[in-house]
Amino acid sequence: MDTILEIEELEMSYQTIKGFVSAVDNVSFKIMKGESMGLVGESGCGKTSLGMCIMKLLPENARIMNGKILFDGEDIVPKTEEEMRKIRWKGVSMIFQAAMNALNPVYRVGDQIIEAIQTHDNISKEEAREKVEKLYELVGLSPERMKNYPHEYSGGMRQRAIIAMALACDPKFIIADEPTTALDVIVQDQIIDEIVNLQKKLNMTMMYISHDISVIAETCNKIGVMYAGNIVEYTYTSTLFDNPLHPYTKALMSSFPSIEGPKKELKPVPGEPPNLLNPPEGCRFYPRCSYAEEICKKENPEFVEIEKDHFLACHKVI
């Protein structure tokens, strides 16, 4: 299999009045063509920032300090905004979090997608319209809905339209950033189902960002667990659930209630996530870790492959 995305020692910081906040720190991983990778972590752990790095849609106060983002073998970090515009949508595309804000309320939804296609592909309006019709059918919307305005769509339909828009230029790689957070349980489930089916059908590579490990468990074949700017564990979903190694991964799994199986007592992770303005020395998880040792306070563990396709950053297990 070919590698489509390879990230090497990526480091990204936000400049604030109080100093630099390192939102993404020393992150390295690879995604193969056709894979779906889930990125799971708590709010503020840097998962959305990582997604934005790959799109290079960074706010003004954010800076990539170090590292490479190799997309299809090309490093996109030094690329200019002009060059990135060609890669976005056609190369990498994104399904955004807030569907309501991603659509302009005063234009018809169909027209908005047509316009998005025309700015990237040199095709006529008629061709674009036909393409949108096909996309609508693909994501389970009736093409007649194209002439409606965003407020005439329900929450689920809006999210489907956003997906259609993200797929408009046949991207090779798609990032879905919590695409279902604002939706109700049943609709959320349908959208997730739709995304999984589309990913398989179109043989796309996907990165799915979520705080909910159970959603990731059902959608992705690989999981990256992120904590305070670091990826602490990265492997196949089944491996991770059978044999979680990092203490944070373990803690995360036992802090989720489930409707399946016997009722288990939840084991919370003690303490709170660290302030990234001055993260703890050494391993960022050690203040909350029940296995912490002397070395964890001093050195940040390296992210290494401890068995085939199972990457981990923990002193204790290595």
Binding site: V185, Q190, D212, F241, F256, S258, I259
Partner: peptide, 22 residues
């Protein structure tokens, strides 16, 4: 509603009950 709750276990295959949106 119950069939739409994701399960934190990649091996558990749940059956979705398909219903329309409200």
């Amino acid at each position: 509603l119950l069939s739409a709750v994701p399960i934190p276990n990649p091996k558990a295959k749940r059956k979705r009950i398909k219903i329309g949106e409200r």
